[in-house]
């Protein structure tokens, strides 16, 4: 065995031992849930008091308790439907609940969620391990993230785009099994994306793969058209507008204002210098070169500021991952007081 492997093996074993010790002494990450029986009945809801005389009652599904409270009678022939729902509770809520009434059965440890928590911790550590160097743990994590995320977006695309934005428009009746409240008439314009989609998938067929260029051409054409005006409107015109500033700010009561004037002059001058830098028709020589150089300096200051600002965000991201490990998983810290043992 290589020395490095040995060292890492020892580190992992020690870590594991410490984890077990921590678990025995003060506990480690667990997830609890509260279960609840949901019951729904189909009832006739009369129109509200004061409504027009010709308004008809509507048929709705309501939680059984709610319907009973409003003394509504179930629709004849309908059956009560329901299932058991789970909602997460903090360990503290679980302990307090069980302490108050040890016979409660609605509060319990959730095995899938607890396993999930540990899986998440494993994945977190596996990604971090890449910082040391590429290794099998990272490779597993990488393989998982690629597979899960690719499928994740396919599922989102199907349920959030294809179903409501194409199928529901083309034929509302055909999607009622999944989107029961869908209304409206079929919109035949949506045959266009349907046809284009089919053409796009034509690529999979051995013949006529070039058909797929048509939808591509459509996408690129519409994109170019939309962006051209939108960018000229919002970024081009609006940015010129915002750059039109008085170079000498004079307040009618207070007189000449030095700092606002200075800032405006710097701002306008800097924008112009940067524009000169982007000018393609002239070589950066002589006067133009000098101004362009000033433009680069402004850009560099901009980049420096951007860098400094962004660093903040990146550190917060790391902080939240480490908080997850220390707080949710290892129970080392408890800033929001949710898993410190109650006595």
């Amino acid at each position: 065995m290589k020395r490095e492997t040995t060292v890492w093996l020892v580190v992992m074993l020690v870590g594991l031992a410490m984890l077990v010790a921590k678990g025995v002494v003060s506990g480690v990450g667990r997830e609890y849930v509260q279960t609840e029986q949901k019951r729904f009945v189909q009832v006739e809801v009369p129109p509200p008091i004061g409504a027009d005389a010709d308004e008809k009652p509507t048929t709705q599904w309501l939680p059984a308790a709610d319907a009973a409270a409003r003394s509504l009678t179930p629709v004849p022939g309908s059956t009560e439907l329901g299932w058991t729902a789970e909602s997460p509770v903090t360990p503290r809520a679980y302990w307090e609940g069980m302490k108050a009434d040890p016979s409660r059965t609605d509060l319990r440890l959730s095995v899938p969620r607890t396993i999930g928590l540990w899986v998440a911790a494993f994945f977190t550590l596996a990604i971090f391990s890449f910082l040391y160097r590429d290794n099998p743990f990272y490779k597993i994590a990488e393989a998982c993230v690629v597979g899960v995320s690719a499928a994740y977006w396919m599922v989102v695309g199907f349920w959030d785009v294809i179903m409501p934005n194409m199928m529901a428009k083309l034929s509302p009746d055909s999607v009622r099994w999944a989107i029961p409240d869908v209304t409206g008439e079929p919109e035949w314009a949506y045959t266009v994306p349907l046809v284009l989609s089919i053409m796009l998938l034509w690529r999979l067929s051995p013949k006529g793969a070039w058909i797929a260029r048509w939808p591509l051409a459509f996408i690129i054409g519409t994109t170019a058209g939309l962006r051209l005006v939108a960018f000229l409107h919002t970024d081009f015109l609006a940015q010129i507008r915002n750059s039109i500033l008085p170079l000498a700010v004079v307040d009618q009561t207070a007189g000449f204002q030095f700092w606002p004037s200075f800032n405006n002059i710097v701002l306008v001058g800097a924008v112009l210098a940067c524009l000169v830098y982007f000018f393609f028709s002239f070589e950066h020589k002589g006067f133009v070169g000098g101004v362009a150089r000033g433009g680069i300096w402004v850009l560099m200051i901009t980049f420096g500021a951007g860098f400094g600002y962004t660093v903040m965000g990146r550190i917060a991201l790391l902080a939240i991952r480490l908080e997850f490990l220390m707080d949710n998983w290892l129970w080392l810290i408890d800033p929001t007081n949710i898993h410190t043992k109650i006595t």
Binding site: F236, I240, S243, I244, L245, P246, L247, A248, V249, V250, Q252, N264, V268, V271, L272, L275, F278, F279
Partner: peptide, 22 residues
Amino acid sequence: KLIVAGLMVVGCLIATAASITG
């Protein structure tokens, strides 16, 4: 870019004159 620069210069001059003279 020339249009931008032209509009900015003209606009800033008008804005300055407006600010000074009111």
